[in-house]
Nucleic acid binder design. Structure first.
Length: 702
DNA sequence: GAGCACTGC
């Protein structure tokens, strides 16, 4: 696929060269000028020297320093890619990866996929000539499963490390041990080779990985100290950024109602301050939608000849076309006010912002391993987030940030948010580490270690699922197969089991659909409409079957487009989605996941068969895999989970097809607390199946 | 009878 793209682009370039040569020359001059003006440009030699001198380097680069685009080029030019080795750069997000790679390819004047390439899930735009490779951190982790010493890389740069995603944290630990092992091989110590070979499976094939690995961690300032300590006192270098000054203003008193205070501030800015757009950080969809309504009401009360204000919302579950609206400049005479979640902190950069309003809160997810319970809670932001938010006002010129809390409250904030690894289930991480040859996962060198209880609960789950033996070893073939699939262990188990239940075809669809969040875009106005449409797909036996119905209904129009990618076929697909109030991006994503999973299970030699109308088989298979997620109806009509720390009085989520029917016994996908605890994506099972299908957890006497 | 930040393989 990458090859095809390469050829195409090369042809296009040749054909258009004469027409575009003049404008592309000008564009290139501009690019080079921009490069030379970056703060990092003046320290190129110094940086290269530091990398040559130290195996690990922490680079603290402020926004606008050019570190992500320039440093890899410096290293390439300094000869770090000798012997066909690569400079790898990891990023936490797909879009970021792609856009930096594009930019660098332009700067190097090469076709993307040649010297400069990128690799993200579903898209590998690299070739044998690629030397600078941008990728998501999760993908490099997957790569480590195949090549435990990451022997192709001379340098690995971990960008945005301060965001502390699970992938980044695991990657840091892994890179530390790979670096250690590779420098030891450099000393040619046979005994150590043997020891390490025992630790990392697949080692014998990878003898090339003997040269030392250079490691560069790029971070924001507040966390540099911690990274340096973690890497044994590694040297930290600071690079100047290029930001405009931002005036930070605080309130005198804490605000009771921050939404109300935000509105007051919006109008104050709108009526009294110079032109420039406003960015307001709120916590969720509901808050943003009511904020939008309230602003429009207040606007009506302003005198007719007042300045105009355009309200634009943005949050992740908004379909991407509507998200794009924030990038469009306000029409003449209008000031734009953007109501955003923390999507605008890192994922989306909005041009034209001069004013930021920061109430100081964020919605965060937490996980309770004992109850297997996720919760979404509004909490105060950290200092790092507050700085990130105010920085959004100074990208194009001097700006102002209004923090809706007193200055001494700022001092009380945590430095950084709690890293994700302390807020999620460890089951998947443990499985990955085991597959990488890390036997003692609790002893793994995490930069911050999750709680012991969290390890214990996930280890228990993996043993119950049959992924680990009673001696905590990865089982063969079940555990190995599960580790190969890019899924949560329960989903992987469901796929593996379903080939025995003759319903792998159905389970592939169900798992792909469960992996995609927010398939239906639901704004508060369209609520009833969504219900009516959803009814056509609804299965009385539960949501898993409903999801399968949606997928199958879309299959015809999707297949038509995916086999012949014409604009017309795409329109037909989009029209179908629109009519059924489904987010086309999400559905497309589900189809992509489905085909990736299908390839994987076929490679494992599993038999892809359909159970046809025998849906009992499918539900029995769900019970056999999701036995940790079973709930029983209580006399009061609410539900009780059967985990070892059970929870009472939970409701099936009202969007479920089982919400009204209230069956006796269900399996569910998630237990989430928002305003109340809810069970999401439920399907009816028979309680009596459990003793037969999951005897490891349900013996007959219980 | 309800709406859930953000990512990723």
């Amino acid at each position: 696929m990458a090859q095809g793209q390469l050829n195409n682009s090369t042809k296009t370039r040749k054909r258009n060269f004469s027409e575009h040569s003049r404008s592309s020359y000008a564009k290139r001059q501009k690019l080079l000028q921009h490069r030379a003006s970056l703060p990092i440009a003046s320290v190129e030699k110094l940086l290269v020297k530091e990398v040559q001198k130290h195996d690990t380097l922490i680079i603290v680069g402020e926004t606008g320093s050019g570190k992500s685009t320039q440093l890899p080029q410096f290293l390439y030019n300094a000869g770090f890619c000798g012997n066909g080795k690569l400079v790898g750069v990891t990023q936490p997000r797909r879009v970021g990866t792609l856009s930096v790679a594009k930019r660098v390819a332009e700067e190097c004047d090469v076709v993307l996929g040649e010297k400069v390439g990128y690799s993200i899930r579903f898209e590998d735009v690299t070739s044998t000539s690629t030397r600078i490779k941008y990728m998501t951190d999760g993908l490099l982790l997957r790569e480590a499963l195949l090549d435990p010493y990451l022997s192709r890389y001379a340098v690995i740069i971990v960008d945005e490390a301060h965001e502390r995603t699970v992938h980044t944290d695991v990657l840091l630990g892994l890179l530390k041990s790979v670096q250690n092992a590779r420098s030891k091989f450099g000393n040619n110590d046979k005994q150590l080779e043997k020891e390490n070979a025992a630790q990392c499976f697949g080692f014998r094939k990878h003898f090339q990985g003997r040269s030392p690995l250079k490691l560069i961690i790029m971070s924001a300032s507040l966390d540099a100290q911690m990274f340096s300590q973690y890497f044994g006192g590694a040297r930290a270098v600071h690079i100047q950024g290029r930001q405009f000054p931002v005036d930070v203003l605080y309130t005198y008193h804490p605000q009771q109602n921050y939404l109300d205070a935000s509105l007051t501030t919006i109008f104050q800015i709108h009526l009294e301050e110079d032109p420039g757009d406003i960015l307001v950080f709120l916590t969720g969809q509901e808050e943003i939608e009511s904020g939008e309504r309230l602003i429009k009401e207040r606007l009506k009360q302003l005198p007719e000849n007042s300045k105009k204000l355009l309200v634009v919302p943005i949050f992740s579950s908004l379909p991407s076309e509507r998200q794009m609206r924030v990038l469009v400049p306000a029409p003449p005479g209008f000031r734009k006010v953007i109501l955003a979640t923390n999507i605008a902190e890192t994922s989306v950069t909005i041009p034209g912002i001069k004013y930021v309003i920061d109430p100081g809160f964020v919605k965060a997810r937490f996980y309770d391993p004992n109850k297997r319970l996720e919760s979404l809670t509004v909490i105060p932001i950290s200092k790092a987030q507050a700085l990130q938010r105010s920085g959004r006002a100074g990208r194009e010129g001097p700006g102002k940030c209004f923090r809706l809390y007193p200055e001494n409250d700022f001092e009380k904030l945590e430095d950084s948010p709690k890293p994700e690894i302390k807020r999620c289930s460890l089951s998947n991480i443990i499985l990955q580490l085991k597959a990488l040859g890390v036997d003692d996962v609790i002893g793994f060198d995490f930069i911050e270690k999750p709680s012991r209880q969290s390890f214990v609960k996930s280890l228990e789950e993996l043993i119950l699922l049959g992924a680990l033996t009673d001696e905590f070893k990865l089982s063969n073939p079940v555990g190995r197969h599960m580790a190969c699939l890019p899924l949560d262990p329960i989903y992987s188990k469901a796929l593996i089991l379903s080939s025995e239940f003759n319903c792998l075809e159905e389970m592939l669809i169900a798992v792909a659909m469960l992996s995609v969040k927010s398939l239906f875009y639901i704004s508060s106005e369209k609520l009833d409409e969504v219900r009516t449409v959803y009814k056509c797909f609804e299965s009385p036996e539960g949501d898993h079957l409903t999801l399968i119905n949606v997928y199958r209904a879309s299959n015809e129009v999707f297949k038509k487009w995916s086999t012949l990618r014409t604009e017309d076929n795409y329109k037909i697909f989009r029209k179908w989605c629109k009519e059924n109030l489904i987010d086309s991006g999400s559905l497309r994503h589900a189809h992509d996941i489905h085909s990736q999973l299908r390839r994987s299970v076929e490679q494992m030699g599993l038999r892809v068969a359909s159970c046809g109308d025998d849906l009992l088989q499918f539900r029995r298979c769900l019970a056999a895999a999701f036995f940790c997620n079973v709930a029983l109806k209580q006399p009061n009509g609410k539900y009780r989970t059967l985990a070892n720390d059970p929870m009472n009085d939970i409701q099936i989520h009202p969007c479920s097809s089982l919400f009204q029917g209230k069956p006796e016994c269900i399996v569910f996908d998630e237990l989430v607390v928002t305003n109340k605890p809810y069970l999401r994506n439920a399907t009816i099972i028979d309680y009596l199946w459990l003793a037969e299908l999951a005897p490891q957890m349900y013996s007959l006497e219980n």
